[in-house]
Nucleic acid binder design. Sequence first.
DNA 1: TTGTACGCGTTATCAA
DNA 2: TTGATAACGCGTACAA
Lengths: 332, 332
Amino acid sequence: MDNLKERVTIYEVAKSSGVSLATVSRVINNSGTVKEDTKNKVLAVIKKLGYKPSGLAQALATNKTTNIGVIIPSANYVYISNMLNGITEVCKDKGFTVSLYTTSHSREDALNCLERVIKSHVDGVIVFDDELNGEDLEVFNNYAVPVIDVNNSITASKIGCIPFGYEHLIKKIIEDNFTKGDKKMTFLHVHNAGRLLSRVENQFIKVHMHNDREYNIVNCDDSYQRTYQDFLERFKYVRKEYVIAYRDSIAAAVLNAATDSGLSVPEDIEVLSIIGTKYSSILRPSISNLHIDFQDVGKRAMYMLIDLINGTLIEKEYKFESVYVKKNSTKY
Amino acid sequence: MDNLKERVTIYEVAKSSGVSLATVSRVINNSGTVKEDTKNKVLAVIKKLGYKPSGLAQALATNKTTNIGVIIPSANYVYISNMLNGITEVCKDKGFTVSLYTTSHSREDALNCLERVIKSHVDGVIVFDDELNGEDLEVFNNYAVPVIDVNNSITASKIGCIPFGYEHLIKKIIEDNFTKGDKKMTFLHVHNAGRLLSRVENQFIKVHMHNDREYNIVNCDDSYQRTYQDFLERFKYVRKEYVIAYRDSIAAAVLNAATDSGLSVPEDIEVLSIIGTKYSSILRPSISNLHIDFQDVGKRAMYMLIDLINGTLIEKEYKFESVYVKKNSTKY
DNA sequence: TTGTACGCGTTATCAA
DNA sequence: TTGATAACGCGTACAA
């Protein structure tokens, strides 16, 4: 029971069943034509010996690994793990395996990742990482490995992308607030929180400027506790405000601080979270947010990647538009 | 720019720099002795040609993939994605790559996974999946691939494990409630929620029986909405209860239902969540829970696996004890 | 210090 | 319908 069997090879199967390698290979892959008799014979031996083909050798011979690489900052953010789930789901269905490459919020590390991905011979890559820009991805083009870039908008012969649409929606929400609302808006700026937040922030500023309205940008740590404390201070003199936060835990910090300062939501304070999780509906008050189904994004990315691998991808860009999910933290 | 370069091989590097394959190989791996001169020459050519060794061929030649497989039900649960992060962190540091294998809550699927993992030639496996028991993992022992089984307690020559300690703690909490508390306890039973919950539930029953106390087991969906509705009904006649839930979103459902039924927490209703997330502290009232740092679990699992691969793992079992994090949803 | 030649476990192209 | 045999890209004794 404890004797570590050496790996059974196709050679031994061939010998043991009295045929050649080629025939065994044909049986494994259902390719060519094999007489029913010999086929069964070989299959029996395979079962008896517990033979499993080496994916490595197969990959080397066919130049296909059935591995796809996923480059992400870390699996910690819910939206990323949701995306990961979408990807793995499709992968499993289509016979691919996911190799995970996480970067550590440093450009050097991200570039290092690219090296490792190239080395690993993946059949394709899904990138969801702000450290990597279009030029970086050219490396993949050079090695002819197809790429889907999520939350970006570049395409090339072997590069497709899935950009997110937040701009239109945030514009509409802000302008609605101009007409129907009664509060000055504040955007919570988080240092180094990536392209997505930056784009929303830029749009926030642009819409305000364009409408000649005042606004606030407030620096904010990406930490519940710190944000909670900061807003406890802030609400000593600011008693009316519409706050836009990056994610629901930060939004919750603002809301809890508001409640604890004797302010009421959404009458005195309104809060909008850009990214929402299932907790957005569980928290009291529930938190309005801009929804994108990231599991769906993952699935779509994978489907696009498969098409790209097969050379059948027609539309290289597929945009996911966010949807406003109105909860109790905002009036409209 | 669009001409897909064929992959540069060690062969071309050798030819281009006027040395043999072997020398190039030595340069790549810093093995053997190479004259400084030729080394630099080769390195220059490598850089010029943009040569990257094929991990595939290397793996085939050395019988090492530097890949480790991670078998999990899905990355959706926060505690799993936390564990995943711990694993990837150590992996990156130690030069391994993570291959993800997700199972779909079916035994057949899980066994299928094992096949694929074997095929893929990983150097080791971390298993965190309730569908797989000790016998199933023997397959790995046969193929001499080291395994760390998380949330289980089996060991073998090439199998280590990381069990979780919830029993002692839950016993203490329950018995504390017997002496200091004033409420009958209810355990939320979720069908098919895995070993971890079952074990806690068994302990819950055992402690009650042993102390000759009454208790309730209530069936419950693993859904916030359903649980919320159910408890809204339940709180029409049950007005005092100590509820133990699997995770904080379910605990929150009970708490919100309590609040909405005019009951106060923790005076009338107490709730304990077994698994907590960061939202446990954010939700109002905050939710008491039994804490285990799953990122730490992931790290430890990976360190143990590396030792197991190197044949230097001494203690094959490392237990993580949970810690009671008292919040506002319970009295003591 | 360097080069030769074989092995790793498959697939695939020919003949037979 | 089958069987040799050459790739696939690299590591590594062994020889030089």
